[in-house]
């Protein structure tokens, strides 16, 4: 860990309170989230793990305002997002949230630089020049800015996506299996880059993953099974994560 890192402020960047998410009704009813309460701390790198169908993606989608909650409340920063209309959610996404997806992360018609600046352009904001330089420096794409996504490797594309999420300085960045499509080398690059942005810049990041190695880069790992939080680890190692997964697998 870097010495002299900024002190971590322990207030929630996003939180869920008694969150329920139920799909369908009657016989076909599926409960994806069962009374989940969680606080995602500011300036931390949180990983959400769990087997398929555990509700980890649903939790992230609800926290990010991409999906609506059936019951309960979600806050991003001070904003309660449950009950917001489309315009409100759009505003939220512009100002407070950044996204990194597994694939289809970039617009093929725009250059890397244009992709990075797109959220700011959409919101009609000017980029902070110094910050932009810092971000570009950190992702190491200086000489690739004029390229289009098709001319970049998968890892480079994902780094562009990271830069795009960072450049707007959102309250929280949600990353959905960001390394799912990458080989392990590129994946590690992206993960250490995410980690650095938490440590160096105090960025809050929430990442959904099923990869123990990826989760080991996080400050905290939350484990979900059957729509409930069943465990959590702080400062995890890959081994500890794997052990926990095994244990949960045996319990459920």
């Amino acid at each position: 860990m870097t010495i002299g890192a900024p002190p971590r402020v322990r207030t929630a960047a996003a939180s869920a309170t008694n969150l329920w998410k139920v799909y369908g009704s009657g016989e076909a009813q599926v409960v994806a989230l069962r009374d989940v309460s969680v606080e995602l701390e500011r300036g931390q790198f949180t990983a959400i793990m769990g087997p398929s169908g555990s509700g980890k993606s649903t939790l992230m989608h609800c926290l990010a305002g991409l999906d609506s909650a059936t019951r309960g409340q979600v806050h991003v920063g001070d904003t309660q997002i449950t009950g917001l209309n489309d315009a409100g959610l759009t505003k939220l996404r512009r100002e407070k949230v950044g996204f990194i997806f597994q694939q289809f992360n970039l617009l093929p018609t725009l250059t890397a630089e244009e992709n990075i600046l797109l959220p700011l352009a959409i919101a009609g904001r000017k980029p902070d020049k110094d910050w932009y330089e810092t971000v570009i420096q950190t992702v190491g794409l200086k000489d690739r800015l004029g390229h289009r996504p098709t001319q970049l490797s998968g890892g480079q594309q994902q780094r562009v996506a990271c830069a795009r999420a960072l450049v707007a300085r959102p309250e929280v960045i949600f990353a959905d299996e960001p390394t799912g499509n990458l080989d392990s080398k590129s994946g590690n690059e992206v993960l250490s880059f995410l980690q650095r942005s938490v440590v160096d810049f105090g960025q809050t990041i929430v990442m959904v993953t099923h990869d123990a190695n990826a989760a080991s880069y996080a400050d905290r790992v939350i484990f979900l099974a059957d729509g409930q939080i069943v465990d959590e680890l702080r400062h995890p190692t890959a081994e500890a994560v794997l052990d926990t997964i095994k244990r949960i697998g045996a319990d459920h």
Partner: peptide
């Protein structure tokens, strides 16, 4: 569809 989803996710409003 995916691109539109991405754009909406990063803050493009319906009107836009």
């Amino acid at each position: 569809t995916r691109e539109l989803g991405l754009l909406r996710a990063i803050g493009l409003s319906r009107a836009a």
